[in-house]
C-alpha cells in the first residue's frame, strides 16, 4: 500500500467534492472558527485535548437548531475507500442535529480512520450488538428526483470534514 489511509480518505473526499481540513489539537479552535458559518450548534466532542470553540452552542434545543447554519459533531470513524464518516446516535442528539443545518462539520480523529467498508463494519458489529446506532454518511444530502442532482434534499447542502491529528508531529 503506497498511500496511507489518511491520504486515501482525503482523496476520496476530494473526489466527492467534499471539503477537508487537517488540523491538530493546537490549531483546532482556529480551524473550526474559520470553517463554520454562524449561528452554530453542535455536541461536545468525546476526544481528549480538544473541545469545540465557544462559537458553537453545544446545548442545542429545537429552537436554536432551527436557526443554526452550521453543526459541529464528532464522527466515530472515517472510511478511506469511500470518504465516509460514521456518525453515532447519542443521547445528546449528535446524530440528528447534524442533519438540520446547511453545513455539517464532522470531526474525525486520524486514529479512527479505517481503510475499508468491511473494516468499518467489523468495528461497528460489537457496538450495534450493544444497542448503539450509527449513520455512515458520505458527502452531503442529495436527490435527483426533481430532474437534476441537487444537494441538500432533507439534510446538509455541504459537508466539511475536519481530520484531527492525534500525533502533533504529523500535523500540517
Amino acid at each position: 500500500m503506497s498511500a496511507s489511509p489518511i491520504d486515501r480518505f482525503t482523496r476520496s473526499l476530494e473526489d466527492l467534492d467534499v471539503a477537508v481540513t487537517r488540523t491538530d489539537p493546537a490549531g483546532f479552535t482556529e480551524t473550526i472558527e474559520t470553517i463554520v458559518e454562524p449561528p452554530c450548534v453542535g455536541t461536545p466532542l468525546p476526544f481528549a485535548d480538544v473541545s469545540v470553540p465557544d462559537v458553537v452552542d453545544t446545548e442545542p434545543t429545537p429552537r436554536t437548531l432551527e436557526a443554526a447554519q452550521t453543526t459541529v459533531t464528532a464522527a466515530s470513524m472515517g472510511i478511506s475507500a469511500y470518504g465516509s464518516v460514521v456518525l453515532p446516535s447519542r443521547p445528546d442528539g449528535s446524530e440528528q442535529v447534524s442533519l438540520f443545518t446547511d453545513l455539517h462539520v464532522p470531526v474525525v480523529r486520524e486514529s479512527d480512520i479505517v481503510d475499508s467498508m468491511a473494516g468499518a463494519i467489523d468495528r461497528l458489529g460489537p457496538r450495534l450488538r450493544d444497542g448503539e446506532s450509527a449513520i455512515i454518511a458520505t458527502g452531503p444530502s442529495a436527490t435527483a428526483d426533481m430532474g437534476a442532482l441537487v444537494r441538500g434534499a432533507h439534510g446538509p447542502k455541504e459537508v466539511h470534514v475536519v481530520i484531527l491529528s492525534t500525533d502533533t508531529e504529523g500535523s500540517q
Binding site: E59, T61, R63, R90, D92, S133, S141
Partner: peptide, 26 residues
Amino acid sequence: TSYISLLTPPVDSPVVDVDEPDVAFA
C-alpha cells in the same frame, strides 16, 4: 448513497419536539 443508516431501535437520539422548543436535546 449519502446515508447508510444503521439504527438499533429504540435509538438513543432524543426526539425533536416542536412543542418543547427550548428544552435542550441533552
